[in-house]
Lab assay of single mutants.
Amino acid sequence: LRLEVKLGQGCFGEVWMGTWNGTTRVAIKTLKPGTMSPEAFLQEAQVMKKLRHEKLVQLYAVVSEEPIYIVTEYMSKGSLLDFLKGETGKYLRLPQLVDMAAQIASGMAYVERMNYVHRDLRAANILVGENLVCKVADFGLARLIEDNEYTARQGAKFPIKWTAPEAALYGRFTIKSDVWSFGILLTELTTKGRVPYPGMVNREVLDQVERGYRMPCPPECPESLHDLMCQCWRKEPEERPTFEYLQAFL
């Protein structure tokens, strides 16, 4: 395994491009020591290896001592969030954005069929390849993070704006909380990567959403798509659509 080009840095580690087995181009995620327990990670990795779908980033291998390494397929255009905010983002029109959403829903419909939960679905965790191919990455890892700023769910590192209220408040993460996050991801797509709930801080978002506030229809977004977002944001988790439905609708 060779680490060649550093692609990015996040709160919990770095991402590199490299070569595996001398020939395969891969992405390598390294986790800061202390982010998660190697034992817990190894268990999760076994499950992650079983998830194989064309719209999920394929896991190739893991190094399960500290520092933990995760070796996955390489996606040339990086994260969907950076892609939307970058040069190419300007030229993306609604049909392409909807197609990308459908690809993500397709990957998540598979996660749904496998009775698995992602827990951290957002544009930053979707990767883009050639020809606007989108794949879901980092599934299941969020559960293992041991950082206090994260586990408190009120901490600075927790993605509260993407998280369903029952998950943020009571830790009830299910495929239905993933559906909520998918609704937020749809706003990221239609606004080219704007942060959700602009002008609001995490605490406010939690309070307002509890009181029934939902983001309005983004500019140039059809009402039918906003309606779909609002279905994803129904207060009762069981009233939210399935990913199978979302995939078919898109």
Results as ranks from 00 to 15, higher is better:
244 E>S: 12
5 V>D: 14
160 I>A: 07
91 Y>M: 10
10 G>R: 01
163 T>R: 01
139 F>K: 02
179 V>L: 07
212 G>D: 08
160 I>N: 00
221 C>L: 11
161 K>M: 08
132 L>V: 08
118 H>V: 00
28 I>P: 00
194 R>T: 10
236 E>K: 11
122 R>C: 02
16 W>F: 14
175 I>L: 15
159 P>N: 03
76 S>V: 12
157 K>L: 14
69 Y>P: 02
233 W>A: 07
234 R>C: 11
56 L>E: 00
177 S>I: 06
63 V>P: 04
94 L>M: 06
146 E>R: 09
187 T>Q: 09
102 A>R: 14
58 Q>H: 13
56 L>N: 08
221 C>M: 07
155 G>M: 03
195 V>R: 12
176 K>L: 11
37 S>V: 04
21 N>R: 09
221 C>S: 07
57 V>F: 07
40 A>S: 11
130 E>T: 12
114 M>P: 01
99 D>I: 14
101 A>P: 04
90 K>H: 12
39 E>S: 12
225 L>C: 03
242 T>C: 10
79 S>M: 04
56 L>G: 03
11 C>G: 05
15 V>M: 03
107 G>D: 03
232 C>L: 12
163 T>G: 01
242 T>N: 15
81 L>V: 14
103 Q>M: 08
191 T>G: 11
117 V>T: 05
23 T>I: 12
222 P>S: 07
172 R>P: 06
114 M>N: 09
207 D>S: 05
88 T>S: 14
55 K>Y: 10
106 S>H: 14
185 L>Q: 06
61 A>W: 15
212 G>M: 04
100 M>R: 04
107 G>R: 00
194 R>D: 03
226 H>Y: 04
88 T>N: 11
235 K>W: 07
250 L>Q: 06
16 W>L: 15
195 V>L: 10
164 A>E: 08
223 E>M: 12
25 R>W: 12
225 L>M: 13
234 R>N: 12
152 A>L: 04
19 T>G: 13
240 R>L: 01
30 T>G: 13
140 G>V: 02
222 P>K: 08
219 P>T: 11
215 M>Q: 09
164 A>W: 01
162 W>G: 01
87 E>V: 13
45 A>C: 05
213 Y>M: 09
169 L>G: 09
105 A>R: 01
180 W>A: 01
28 I>Y: 10
12 F>A: 03
209 V>S: 07
134 C>S: 08
185 L>M: 09
65 E>R: 12
122 R>Q: 00
212 G>N: 08
240 R>K: 00
245 Y>V: 12
10 G>E: 03
175 I>Q: 15
56 L>K: 06
77 K>M: 10
48 M>G: 05
71 V>H: 02
47 V>E: 00
65 E>Y: 14
237 P>A: 10
20 W>C: 15
60 Y>R: 15
136 V>D: 00
171 G>V: 04
154 Q>P: 15
144 L>Y: 13
195 V>F: 10
166 E>Y: 03
184 I>A: 06
222 P>D: 03
149 E>D: 06
20 W>L: 12
101 A>H: 01
235 K>T: 13
133 V>H: 14
92 L>Y: 11
157 K>M: 12
122 R>F: 03
165 P>F: 11
30 T>I: 04
143 R>A: 01
156 A>R: 03
76 S>M: 13
194 R>Q: 12
174 T>M: 15
95 P>I: 06
180 W>S: 00
110 Y>K: 09
102 A>Q: 13
